[in-house]
Each structure stands twice: as C-alpha cells, then as structure tokens.
C-alpha cells in the first residue's frame, strides 16, 4: 500500500496539491489534492456546487485567483496563463461545450492549435466521429447536443494534448448518446490518453473510470477505486445524495 502511494506521487502525470481558487471575493476551492497517472481515467464526483467544475477551470487557469500547486509532467503551472497551460499538453472540454456559433464544424474542429505531436489525424477523427464529417459545413451550434459534445471532445484529440479535462460530457444527453460517449472515452483511454472527468452521474462514471474522487465543499473528501465502487455504494449515496 505504502509502495503504491509513493508510486502515485512520483509517476503522476498530474499532481494537484492544496489547490485553492477564488471567483472574485468568493473562495470556492479550499485545498484540492488529486493525482492522476498516465493513461488513467479518473472522475470527480460530487453534488452541485462541490467545486468539480471549478477544479477543472482552476487547472486550466480560468479562475480569478489560484493558490497551491499544480504539477503537470513535472512543470509547475499554478501561476501560468491558460494558453501556456494548454501548450503543455492539457486539452479542455468545458461544461457548456463551448461550440462556437460563428464557426462551422470544420472550423470548430480546427480551432485549437496542435501543441505537440501525437494527436489524432483528421482522418482518424472522422473515423471515430463520422457525423462530424457529414456535417462539416454546418454551423457549429446547429448540431444536436450529442454531436456538439462529440465535436467538443474531438477537437482536443487533434492537438496532441495527453491529458483531457472533460466537464460532464453526459449532461443533458439521451441515454443512447451517453452510451456512445462512454464508448468513446474507453476508446481514447485505449489510445493512451489520460482523462480527468467531472460527473454527476456515477452510474455513467462507473462504466469508464479507473478511480473516483469525491468532492464536497471545495475539497476532495474521498477516493474510490472503480472495482470497489459497488461495495461503497452506501458511502457514495451519502456523499451524492442520490
């Protein structure tokens, strides 16, 4: 066990320590600790307002003020600007999906610049998401919710980013589309991507993730391995209030 902890410390692709964040005057994160090893899919579970989205935004440098430590691939990012953070190889898919209305599907797809080699080629992306090819010339926001979500994820697979931050990709989508998103996340895990996923829906999280962090009041309060999820259901129900 102690051995495993040390490994997690040194092997972590992303190591977040005592992360605090503020929106203006309001103090939202109160010391978040997260470790993610290369190739892992890890979720942040928790109720509305627990600080899951803010954690992703803070890692991306999109909050007003941050403190603590965010080490990615050995580099400290706590005071870096968001474009520098992206160029280190972190891809971000926001909760509202961030599809641009004034750009067509191809332009949306090509918007994030390639930050390092190793991203998927356009052909690979179209193989994974055939819908996007059919609708290449459509206005981005004319796509269905599911297609928009695919597009939002597809465009960060191109960039060579190794760590993907996905904020509630299942939100507001029909069950069959959620299953599709789940298959896609397992597929990108197989391709060696590392994923930090925010989820409210732990039944969905269970189908894709290796581990789950539980957040409450701006802190990580628990960690559950996916194989222990079923035996920890009572505990989780209490946290999530479901």
């Amino acid at each position: 066990m102690a051995d495993g902890m040390i490994r997690a410390e040194t092997d972590a692709l992303l190591a977040v320590r005592g992360l605090e964040a503020w929106y203006g005057e309001s103090h939202v994160l109160h010391g978040v600790d997260i470790d993610i090893k290369p190739g892992e899919v890890v979720t942040l579970l928790g109720r509305n307002g627990a600080g899951k989205t803010t954690t992703l935004r803070a890692i991306m440098g999109l909050v007003g003020k941050r403190a603590g430590s965010i080490r990615y691939n050995g580099a400290e990012l706590i005071s870096a600007r968001s474009d520098i953070i992206a160029r280190k190889g972190i891809g971000y898919c926001p909760e509202e999906r961030g599809i641009f209305a004034s750009l067509d599907v191809t332009e949306n797809l090509m918007l994030p610049p390639v930050v390092m080699p190793g991203g998927l080629s356009l052909d690979e992306i179209y193989t994974l998401f055939p819908n996007l090819k059919e609708r290449a010339r459509s206005q981005g926001t004319k796509l269905s919710g599911g297609e928009q979500q695919m597009l939002a994820i597809a465009r960060i697979l191109r960039t060579g980013a190794k760590l993907l931050l996905l904020d509630e990709p299942s939100e507001g989508l029909a069950p069959v589309i959620v299953q599709q998103i789940g298959r896609m996340i397992r597929e990108i895990k197989q391709r060696g991507f590392t994923v930090l996923l925010v989820e409210q829906n732990f039944r969905f999280a269970q189908t894709v993730a290796d581990r789950h962090y539980v957040m409450e009041h701006g802190r990580v309060v628990d960690m559950v391995k996916n194989e222990e999820l079923l035996t920890s259901l009572d505990r989780l129900h209490e946290y999530l209030g479901v």
Binding site: M60, L62, D83, A86, F100, S102, M110
Partner: peptide, 24 residues
C-alpha cells in the same frame, strides 16, 4: 481563413480560445 476563424472564436469566447493555447 484560419486566422479569421480564431478571431471570430475569440470574439465569442476569448477565455476558452485562450484555454486552447492561443495567445489571445
């Protein structure tokens, strides 16, 4: 053009465009 697409996107949502690695 690509440059124009960046410009249109940044007009809509500069924070997100910057979080993609573009120096807004």
């Amino acid at each position: 053009t690509r440059l124009g697409a960046n410009l249109r996107a940044a007009t809509e949502n500069p924070a997100l465009v910057q979080a993609f690695g573009i120096n807004v």
